[in-house]
Design a protein around this nucleic acid. Structure first.
Length: 803
RNA sequence: GCCGGUGUGGUGGAAUGGCAGACGCGACGGACUCAAAAUCCGUUGGUAGCGAUACCGUGUGGGUUCAAGUCCCACCACCGGCACCA
């Protein structure tokens, strides 16, 4: 058969679409399989060759599952709110909606041309009113449960763009867009209380099959630590509470440090004798950019000012100790105050050296005048009164009991995870559906009036003071309070891009439902997602946010499972031909359209699956792809060899082995070795010079998930089968026929390979050993020596150890 | 600094503790061709040898084992994440 991929691919893509071949069925009695890939942000650049790696991998899995009889949901959509679209709109004076429509159209036609088996009847777009209605609805449920709150907090402020930046928009302390300095600025922001779910987000990782590095990264990001809060009395009369993971070292606390932003400073203002100095330090700290702070941290150069006029008492021995302010203590973690134990903490040690503060050893084992001794595993307590002689772990327990009994502290768990800053002063996002009333405070927009649609504005640019473009629109801002009917003002901020993607996998279950985010039946049937593949870059943001929202919806009774994804895998990047990351500036970008045009979608798919270990980065090779094209050429040429029915004797076992290998490898995300097995099989067929139509039909079905267009063409035109190959039954193998009748066994003498011998598969140990000893190649190596040990590994090797 | 990961021919990469280098690319030789491309057949880890064969070989150094790319210990290099989180 001639392989005219251009004719074939268009033909079958059209046929699949017309027949709705890949639409998931709404029959909830069937066994289901929900495969999910991260929906793309439809950028102006079009599809990158990296996108199809993930999409094809789960397309292969989905196609195989479909052939195995599962009701498969493999959906696609558009995560279309976001900055680049808005920036393009500002620059070119086009409505972001139009920009989005154009980009989506381009992306969709590119995805279509890859022959991916998406269910396009469930296509979603986060910028559709019918979609973001439910994004807003979920936000309102969070608000009603007290999980959304407005708070003044320090944000990233770009001095040039005059606007607030998200953390991910700050790269190395400068603005990602313009490269200008970013400073901290207090601003009132909507926050989501993800910290309320911190413990469950860690614990429930046990329930899911995520690759290890994802679990580890999430756990580290959430950053649980166990310790104690300790109350220090002060000469000012107030109690100063600290958090520490090392309560055992309390006797070594020789001073305290509080963050420059700590509110108690204001309270003590009239008692502090060097208030000018303290104030000056506070101002300086607030001016420091992230970049400067990190740089100083690297050099471990500590700064600070002693608070004169107020001192603290160590609760275990009543000793009076000084209090400092320093920016190495963060207001956002713990209590914003620490007890400093220079002998056993490197940061405190650096600070103590610089300010000449006493260093008292309380855990033996190091030389604390030379460096901090931080090893908790081996130390024994000293200079610690009733803790002396205890091991660190025991001392922790004992001191915590002591503090609790004496009402001076208690056990405490802390997390590094912060609440989620949820507002953006931007146009192209979901409006936050809240109204501020002087009398009633923040009031939710009534649910029945959702979606709260984005209004038309004269300009998409943020205001001079970093206000959302919506703030300049009086008709938007001025409204009436839904509660009391009095005059009120609308929230003008919009949601971050992460909002729409935090629940999109739920919408696919019932994508066109106007009455709910999805019906309960659909959610109960399809959820959780059986297999979710995506990038490592989303581990601590999207993946964590969407787990949080799912847990909330579970608590609300909307979902029946606390975890949204049963399994999570991650793909490696496709690099440029030179081994570097693909980018315009490096000039190493490969355009998928060009590849499809030159080699066809099937070759493109096959190559992306064959390129290497799926989880690792791999460089593109314009030579390598030719090998995959050659394989498909050889496959279509092989069709001409097929005649008759039944089984070709010399190929039978190879076919069974290949079916087994391909079936197992697809489930284990090892498409590369599955393809290698098929290449090996085709080589064998060519050696044999013949195969039957039945065997060709088997091979065609094996190839179908990888190169579906060619498989359909052979199925229909060579094999004359009815229906789609893509929906045909997946081939099965007979385990007994995957075993060869005779097996080549390695023969070692003293662990060194000396040759091989063939044996019947069921040959017993003694027969094999006798045969080896009778073979003159090995006999001469054994003769005259004592046999120490004989090892026989059935089907693999024989090792005779002699002396 | 802390937490992960990776390291195998010229190259992308295979290898439940059991014949290292499957499969592909490239290279070399041959067939076909007026010629080239394409295709087909063969060879291809290194060193020595005409050869059978021998020795060496999975980042480095040790160890466990009849047997180590794989397990253990120490180190080196690179990649990713976090980073003054008390």
């Amino acid at each position: 058969m001639k392989y005219d991929f251009k004719a074939i691919e268009g033909k079958w893509q059209k046929a699949w679409e017309e027949k709705g071949a890949f639409h998931a069925k709404n029959d909830y009695t069937l066994p289901k399989f929900y495969a999910l890939v991260e929906f793309p942000y439809p950028s102006g650049q079009g599809l990158h060759v990296g996108h199809p790696r993930s999409y094809t991998a789960l397309d292969v899995v989905s196609r195989k599952k479909r052939m195995q009889g599962y009701n498969v949901l493999y959906p696609m959509g558009w995560d279309a709110f976001g900055l680049p679209t808005e920036n393009f709109a500002i620059k070119n004076k086009i409505h972001p909606k139009i920009v989005t429509e154009n980009n989506v159209a381009r992306f969709k036609s590119q995805l279509m041309s890859l022959g991916l088996s998406f269910d396009w009847s469930r296509e979603i777009n986060t910028t559709d009113e019918g979609y973001y209605k439910w994004t807003q609805w979920i936000f309102l449920q969070l608000f009603k449960k007290g999980l959304a709150y407005k708070s003044k907090m320090a944000v990233n402020w770009c001095t040039s763009c005059k606007c607030v930046l998200a953390n991910e928009e700050v790269v190395n302390g400068v603005c990602e867009r313009c490269g200008s300095e970013v400073v901290r600025r207090e601003k009132s922001q909507w926050m989501l209380k993800i910290t309320a779910y911190a413990q469950r987000l860690i614990d429930d990782l046990q329930l899911v099959d995520f690759i290890d590095r994802v679990k580890v990264q999430q756990t580290n990001w959430i950053g649980r630590s166990e310790g104690a809060e300790v109350d220090f009395d002060t000469t000012a009369g107030d109690i100063l509470t600290v958090y520490t993971t090392r309560p055992d070292t309390l006797f070594g606390a020789t001073y305290m440090v509080i963050s420059p932003e700590h509110p108690i400073i204001e309270k003590w203002a009239d008692k502090i004798s060097n208030m000018d100095e303290v104030k000056a330090y506070q101002v300086e700290a607030s001016k420091k950019s992230d970049f400067e702070r990190t740089e100083l941290a690297d050099k471990k150069e500590k700064t600070g000012v002693e608070i004169k006029g107020v001192r603290a008492y160590n609760p275990v021995n009543g000793k009076e100790i000084p209090i400092f302010i320093s920016d190495y203590v963060l207001i956002t973690y713990g209590t914003g105050a620490i007890m400093a134990v220079p002998a056993h903490d490197t940061r405190d040690w650096d600070f103590a050296k610089k300010f000449n503060l006493p260093i008292i050893e309380v855990v033996a084992g190091g030389n604390v005048q030379e460096e901090a001794f931080t090893d908790v595993a081996t130390g024994i307590m000293v200079n610690s009164d009733f803790l002396n002689g205890l091991e660190v772990a025991d001392a922790k327990v004992k001191i915590t009991e002591f503090l609790t009994e004496n009402n001076k502290g208690h056990k405490k768990v802390n997390f590094k995870l912060r609440d989620w800053v949820f507002s953006r002063q931007r146009y192209w996002g979901e409006p936050i559906p809240l109204i501020n009333c002087e009398k009633c405070g923040w009031v939710a927009v009534p649910e029945e009036s959702l979606p709260l649609t984005l209004p038309e504005v004269p300009s998409y640019e943020p205001g001079a003071d970093g206000e959302s473009p919506l703030a300049s629109l009086d008709s938007w801002v001025k409204c009436t309070c839904p509660q009391c009917g009095g005059p009120a003002e609308r929230e003008t901020d919009t949601m971050p891009q992460w909002a729409g993607s935090s629940w999109y996998f739920l919408r696919y279950c019932d994508a066109n439902n106007p009455d709910a985010l999805a019906s309960k039946e659909a959610l109960d049937y399809w959820m959780p997602v059986d297999w979710y593949n995506g990038g490592m870059e989303h581990t601590t943001l999207h993946l964590l946010y969407s787990r949080f929202w799912s847990k909330f919806l579970y608590d609300e009774g909307i979902l029946s499972n606390p975890e949204p994804y049963a399994k999570r895998t991650s793909h490696g990047m496709i690099l440029g031909e030179n081994g570097e990351k693909m980018s315009k500036s490096r000039g190493n970008v490969v355009n998928p359209d060009d590849i499809i045009n030159e080699y066809g979608a099937d070759t493109m798919r096959l190559y992306e699956m064959f390129i290497g270990d799926f989880e690792k980065a791999a460089p593109w090779s314009s030579q390598g792809i030719k090998g995959c094209k050659r394989f498909l050429d050889r496959f279509s040429a092989m069709c001409d060899l097929a005649k008759g029915n039944g089984v070709t004797e010399c190929l039978e076992s190879s076919f069974h082995k290949t079916i087994k290998k391909v079936t197992e490898d697809i489930d284990n995300l090892k498409a590369n070795t599955a393809i290698a097995a098929m290449m090996a099989l085709i080589n064998e067929v060519y050696d044999a010079g013949t195969l039957t139509m039945d065997e060709l039909a088997t091979f065609t079905r094996l190839l179908c998930p990888f190169a579906p267009h060619l498989a359909e063409e052979v199925w229909s035109e060579v094999l004359h089968m009815d229906g789609f190959c893509s929906l045909a039954q997946w081939p099965e193998y007979d385990e007994s026929k995957t075993v060869d009748a005779t097996i080549e066994v390695a023969v070692q003498i003293c662990g060194k390979l000396k040759g091989t011998m063939n044996f019947a598969a069921d040959a017993d140990k003694d027969t094999m050993l006798a045969a080896v000893k009778a073979d003159e190649r090995f006999a001469k190596l054994i003769d005259g020596k004592t046999i120490v040990k004989e090892i026989v590994v059935p089907g693999r090797l024989i090792n005779i150890v002699v002396k």
